[in-house]
């Protein structure tokens, strides 16, 4: 049985590695359609990654080991997070290595090193990207914690599997606090994964770049790892949201049939979330950076209202 749980663990990581690019492809495809363009297809991200892996690395003269180490670390944290967030099953052997707070911190460590890598080469762009990224992160963090707090009130736990358990076992209760937390989480996830209206993942225009500015000097396998990890990060945030707010489908046992059903339901969720994401991204324009205080302030407000409404109304 124990071995079998590790098999599920590896299955999850394999799904993370393989599905994440397809999900990015799906979002790009929908976006192209919604804007009347022809899309490059679902599998274009794979082709990009493979192409990048086969290319040589061009390294700036001044790059130190931090610049070379960062892609591996970013990749490593993403994979580890994939082993912790329940996507298919709750029976994950290393899931209790980290609760939601640790997960957030895992993303933070990847961000910390990416920001350092941005400053390593010594261009103005790198520094600009790092500075903005860290600013946004520091505004997003209180909101994120508040959302976690609100969610943990209902389940009395910050461990993801426990949250899922509680939602499964509880009777259908309409919780305003969870609705608020969900809204807050969506805003935060948009900020953390660098989507419109916070950052534009497709831009290479100097003054609007945030994440792209930090990784501008990367090439070859380093860039491939970072891009891949970035796709995984988006995927992981969706899985995190799904596990917290809509866990239905995740298998509580380790039976193969249940796992397979969980996999199918996960795909359905991804398709829906992709469509929602595209609607948000096409409907909104990128914000001015100093308007982000209000954007993330609203996220904080929503999460706090969730917390308050738990105490006041539930």
């Amino acid at each position: 049985m124990n071995i079998y749980r590790f098999v599920i663990e590896f299955l999850q990581i394999a799904i993370l590695l393989t599905i994440a690019p397809a999900f990015t492809g799906w979002v790009r495809m929908l976006k192209c359609w919604s804007q009347g363009r022809t899309s490059a297809g679902l599998f274009q991200p794979y082709r990009d990654i493979i192409k990048l892996f086969s290319k040589d690395v061009l390294l700036a003269d001044n790059a130190s080991w931090i610049f070379r180490f960062t892609p591996y670390l970013v990749f490593g944290t993403a994979v580890l997070a994939g082993g912790i967030i329940p996507m298919l099953s709750l029976e994950l052997p290393i899931a209790s290595a980290a609760d939601v707070i640790v997960l957030v911190a895992l993303f933070a460590i990847a961000r910390f090193f990416t920001a350092l890598a941005g400053m390593d080469i010594g261009t103005a762009f790198g520094g600009m990207g790092s500075s903005r990224e860290m600013t946004i992160a520091s505004l997003a963090e209180p909101a994120m914690l508040m959302a976690i707090f609100t969610v943990s009130l209902a389940s009395k736990s910050t461990s993801l599997s426990q949250m899922v358990h509680v939602i499964y076992s509880g009777q259908t209760v309409i919780r305003p606090s969870l609705a608020f937390a969900l809204f807050a989480f969506i805003l935060i996830a948009l900020a953390e994964t660098g989507r419109i209206p916070v950052d534009n993942p497709a831009t290479h225009l100097e003054l609007t770049m945030i994440h792209e500015a930090m990784i501008l000097e990367y090439s070859g396998r380093h860039l491939a790892l970072i891009e891949w990890a970035n796709m995984m990060k988006l995927f992981l945030f969706i899985m995190l949201g799904a596990a917290t707010f809509a866990p239905w489908g995740i298998a509580q046992t380790g039976e193969p049939a249940a796992i397979f059903a969980a996999f199918l339901i996960m795909l359905v969720k991804l398709v829906i979330v992709g469509a929602v994401l595209v609607i948000i991204e096409t409907g909104l324009a990128k914000m001015r950076i100093f308007r982000l205080t209000e954007f993330l302030g609203s996220a904080f407000l929503l999460a706090t209202l969730g917390m308050l409404s738990y105490f006041i109304l539930e």
């Binding site: 994979v79 290393i94 209790s96 609760d99 736990s157 790892l225």
Partner: peptide
């Protein structure tokens, strides 16, 4: 354990293993 748990060892080793493997 149900409330919250953290294992620095696993986080450290997990990141280390993936980084080394990828490298």
């Amino acid at each position: 354990r149900e409330r919250a748990s953290y294992s620095g060892t696993i986080v450290f080793l997990g990141i280390l293993v993936v980084v080394v493997a990828a490298y």
